[in-house]
């Protein structure tokens, strides 16, 4: 089976869908001729022509706004925001328009649109290339929000997102593009070629949106994580010898409440981890869901580990990033609680 990085898997998902469906078009800043600053669209213009994959002006609201019109026409646009940090000019188009078009027109117009964006820190990107804005999208009705944690999922989830008839926000943890980064920034990252989830089948396969995956079964506590933090949590549990069950949410909306509930009822303990800022972060929603569904099964308070409620700093990146020490420490607290 071919082995791919997350970048190659994302590129392959585009190529598979573009070959299969002429209505799939791809555009964004630097995505055409050059193939994207992270190379996620490399070669697509050459293969599918300038009509199907092209460069856009530096105008995020224009990229998403025109994509909404294309989707209303009947195409399936997949657009790239160069960094999630740049999505805010497009926020109105996403929230007020894409998310509500089906509803407000009672199905007269729909918006099958994917907005992809690299998210998260760990590359010394400073406060404008490191943010994790998922909660700004999960709060909006009408959107689906997806965060893959590995190449196999990235391809299968992106194919599902492109095939979905509603707008999907697709957040790609950029620190995972080239390997399963576990938070240990001092050692070189293992390449995806050495990781089982770097095995990516050729051709079309889909991972349904709204389904979480258990990355590591365990009985001591449940860790709810997504994106980069899945690997950090795994490494932290391994290092401390904790029998943690690690749930990779994969899709934040719709959320796989069933799987979360079953896991927490089994372990009786829950840790919620994300890289995004703490206050009003998606972790708050997870804590509420767990409290609602599993309160009488809990043996300890639910704990959250998240980015500090500050902008993402540059020099102090590793003091900001919720690495293995913070996640491991929180696991111990949950077990002791």
């Amino acid at each position: 089976m071919p082995r791919m990085t997350m970048i190659e898997a994302i590129r392959d998902a585009h190529a598979v869908k573009m070959a299969e469906d002429e209505d799939v078009v791809v555009f964004g800043e630097d995505v055409g001729y050059f193939g994207g600053v992270f190379r996620c669209t490399a070669g697509l213009q050459e293969t599918f022509g300038k009509n199907r994959c092209f460069d856009a002006p530096i105008n995020e609201s224009g990229i998403v706004g025109t994509a909404i019109g294309m989707a209303a026409f009947g195409l399936r646009p997949v657009v790239e925001m160069q960094f999630a940090d740049y999505v805010y000019p497009a926020y109105d188009q996403i929230v007020s328009e894409a998310a509500r078009l089906r509803y407000r027109s009672a199905g007269d117009f729909t918006c099958p649109l994917v907005v992809r964006m690299p998210t998260g820190g760990g590359i010394f990107g400073g406060q404008t290339h490191s943010q994790s804005p998922e909660a700004l999208f999960t709060h909006v009705s009408g959107l689906k929000t997806v965060v893959p944690s590995n190449p196999y999922d990235a391809k299968g989830l992106l194919i599902s997102a492109i095939e979905d008839n509603d707008p999907v926000i697709f957040l790609e943890p950029k620190r995972l593009y080239n390997g399963p980064f576990d938070g240990d920034h001092d050692k070189p990252v293992t390449p995806w070629s050495k990781h089982p989830l770097g095995e990516v089948p050729e051709g079309r396969y889909a991972i349904p949106l709204g389904k979480a995956a258990i990355r590591r079964e365990g009985s001591a506590l449940t860790v709810l994580a997504y994106g980069t933090m899945v690997h950090v949590a795994e490494a932290a549990a391994d290092a401390l010898g904790i029998d943690a069950e690690i749930v990779d949410l994969r899709t934040l909306v719709p959320l796989d409440v069933e799987l979360i509930e079953a896991s927490v009822k089994k372990t009786g303990r829950c840790l919620v981890v994300h890289e995004a800022t703490l206050t009003s972060g998606f972790g708050a929603e997870l804590v509420a869901v767990v409290a609602d569904a599993c309160f009488y099964h809990l043996e300890a308070p639910i704990v959250r580990v998240a980015g500090w409620d500050t902008p993402y700093p540059h020099a102090q990146e590793w003091d900001y990033f919720p690495g293995q020490a913070r996640v491991g420490g929180a696991m111990k607290r949950v077990l002791e609680g």
Binding site: S61, G62, G65, A67, M70
Partner: peptide
């Protein structure tokens, strides 16, 4: 801007 996108789709 959406209508411009719709027109672009028609051209595509």
């Amino acid at each position: 801007v959406q209508g411009v996108g719709w027109a672009m789709a028609s051209a595509i």
